[in-house]
Design a protein around this nucleic acid. Structure first.
Lengths: 168, 168
DNA sequence: CGGTACATGTAAAAGGTTACATGATTTC
DNA sequence: GAAATCATGTAACCTTTTACATGTACCG
């Protein structure tokens, strides 16, 4: 069993949380709230559901109009999900364009550096606003709190850095 | 020109910051400090340098012992790097195993939830310690500050969440 | 009957990881 | 002369993105 497969876990988690759903539904949910913690488009979700079906983690519970297929999690899928939560040691994101720009700030001149940090600030600001606008429950409560905390921290860094750059 | 290509930017940034270097050197630097903002192994770096050479962004300045090749950034490479810093709107990391576990916390029982958050806490703690141990200058000053701020925020979330879980 | 939302897919390319492979130089 | 480090690479595989492709049902 591979270490990654987080897309699988996200799908199994959604099926457990919201009950049986189609790939289309799951893609919408990704778009609406889960996308703050894990992103995936329908072109990744549909084939993955087929593989999960082959692996016995989900079943096709019903087929509706327009070829709609309703997937439900199986006991084996539940076991896989629980095992991952209990045993998987999560890794910190190892790539961040924002952190890379921060890292390379010294390579651009003073005014450009300010512009870069202001762009980063706007990103964190937008993230914070989007998270604040989410209805509670639309997003896992603890993940929501984590997202808010990290967005506020990023914003704080941007403000401190701008003050530093301007007042030198 | 594609939107991503951040590995290229990271390599160009390093060549500008530390001067001409071999793929081996660059891989070491990735390992030592840049890895907090962008990760890449030598198997990704070597072929990328070859492509960047073909695209005129770097030159092979010298060849040393053991087939060592010293790459230097070209004016075109400098232009590419500057353009990215000036124009690229950075995106927030869209996938986090930590956030995914936080999102799915409600699916495991109380004791397991505490164990999950403690594991996450240990991750942020280790990150914070590693960043604090870095000699200043070994890591871009602003990226270092951002890393510290985000690690402290994650730690804070973990502490708050643990208190919340324990005192219900 | 035209537009929007529903619903599912495939294929090619890009980005990233793991395993394999080779050989030179230095240090003890 | 054995071990560690230097130094570069390839191949297979997995993950993710982008572009292409198709057809159904509902709403006005």
């Amino acid at each position: 069993m591979l270490a990654a497969m987080s897309l699988r876990i996200a799908l199994l988690g959604l099926l457990t949380t919201v009950g049986p759903a189609s790939g289309y539904d799951l893609a919408k949910t990704f778009d609406g709230s889960l996308n703050y913690v894990w992103q995936a488009g329908h072109t990744q979700i549909y084939p993955e559901l087929v593989k999960m079906h082959a692996d016995g983690l989900v079943t096709v519970e019903a087929e509706g109009a327009r070829g709609r297929k309703i997937y439900a999690i199986t006991p084996e899928g539940e076991r896989e999900l629980r095992t991952w939560m209990e045993e998987h040691d999560p890794v910190l994101p190892g790539r961040s364009e924002i952190a890379l720009q921060a890292f390379l700030l010294h390579l651009v001149d003073h005014d450009q550096a300010i512009a870069v940090v202001e762009r980063i600030r706007a990103r964190y600001r937008a993230q914070l606003e989007r998270l604040k606008a989410l209805r509670p429950g639309e997003f896992g409560r603890h993940a929501h709190a984590l997202g808010l905390t990290l967005a506020r921290a990023g914003l704080q860094w941007a403000d401190t850095t701008l003050a530093d750059l301007r007042g030198d």
